[in-house]
Design a protein around this nucleic acid. Structure first.
Length: 309
RNA sequence: GGCCCGAUGGCGGAGUGGUGACGCAGCGGACUGCAAAUCCGUGCACCCGAGUUCGAUUCUCGGUCGGGCCU
């Protein structure tokens, strides 16, 4: 038999991990990470990864399995997650995918364009071109090969502009063309989802409290260790909320209070963006609009009563 | 008690006799390979009262509050 697939999305500090664990225990399932930063080994505290104790309660996959020196991408995650999900299913167990990265869920449910990895040399060259040309000229050049992309990409969005050029430069086909077809999506109807959307005030209060706890219980040491690795600041790990703030504190540029306040603010903004994604992209996902482990479980069971069938 | 200075949106901070700069925060939004990223949009603010004026946030007078100095 093949197990079921459950998807649990929600903003930071909304209680996703706890719900996933409870569900995993209830159905004998395995948990798969869909969070772009919990992927990395370096930041257990700051990325709020499940504790070692939690990990003994149910099998966890793709949590802290990647070295910070490696920069993963949605595509890389999609392939890894796809393999893990297939494997768990083949063993007849339920899969519970949890995370806060909307794009990852998008890749899972809608698929991703089949674009090969862009060689580093091409990416570097494109970055240089962008700097040399400036946005206007860069757009003009891109318009010649991918007019649709130029039209859809917002002003100032260097990241997407250079991505579009990279794809054409490396493959000879436009990004828009590639995106006409996608692959890797879970079969429609093969999964059940839930999106946690707690009241904003309460969520922010939890974010603030959790950041305080992180700072008090290891976040500083963790970042200090990460800092000593001297990694490229453009790597994803280096962009986790709190890393920049703690680094500037460790360097003496900011006192602890200020760093904590700044990290809290960044966290709230991040949560807001996640909620915007859910509102706009996960429109048909059922919501769990309460907060708290028991309330979540009650709402979840009410939504999917035949859990242990 | 006397003299001087200041009073602008949640905060900081320009400026003008007639479209109320800008930054930050907040809020809204986008999102197919860096996504905890990247980016876009958004402000019914000029302390109160009277006066001058076609018109006052801007000028005058009075008041209130804040800051400084003096006796």
């Amino acid at each position: 038999m093949t197990g079921r697939i459950w998807l649990i999305a929600g903003p930071t500090a909304s209680g996703k991990s706890a719900l996933a664990l409870r569900l995993a225990q209830a159905v004998g399932g395995e948990i798969v990470n869909a969070d772009a930063l919990q992927l990395y080994a370096d930041l257990r505290v700051l990325t709020a990864r499940p504790s070692p104790e939690d990990e003994t309660q149910a099998p966890h996959h793709l949590f802290g399995t990647v070295d910070g020196a490696d920069g993963w991408s949605v595509g890389r995650w999609q392939r890894a997650a796809g393999a893990v999900i297939a494997d768990i299913g083949a063993r007849g167990r339920d899969v519970i995918v949890v995370g806060g990265t909307g794009l990852y869920f998008h890749a899972l449910t809608q698929g991703l364009a089949d674009v090969p990895q862009i060689p580093e040399t091409v990416r570097q060259r494109t970055a240089e071109d962008y700097d040399a040309l400036g946005e206007a000229a860069f757009r003009a050049r891109l318009a010649a090969v991918d007019p649709a992309a130029v039209e859809r990409i917002a002003p100032g969005d260097r990241q997407r502009l250079t991505r579009a050029w990279n794809v054409h430069a490396a493959t000879g086909r436009s990004l828009t063309d590639h995106q006409l077809s996608t692959q890797g999506a879970l079969p429609a109807g093969s999964w059940r989802a839930v999106a946690l959307s707690p009241p904003r005030e309460a969520l922010y209060a939890r974010c603030d409290a959790r950041l305080g706890a992180m700072f008090a219980h290891g976040a500083l040491d963790e970042v200090s260790r990460l800092m000593s690795r001297g990694l490229d600041p453009s790597l994803p790990v280096m962009k986790a909320v709190g890393v920049r703030e703690i680094i500037s504190h460790l360097r003496g540029d900011m006192d602890l209070e200020a760093a904590l306040a700044a990290a809290r603010q960044e966290t709230r903004r991040y949560a807001k963006r996640q909620m915007t994604w859910m509102r706009g992209q996960m429109t048909d996902w059922p919501r769990l609009d309460d907060l708290g482990a028991d309330a979540h479980w009650r709402q979840f069971v009410a939504l999917y009563p035949a859990l242990t069938d």
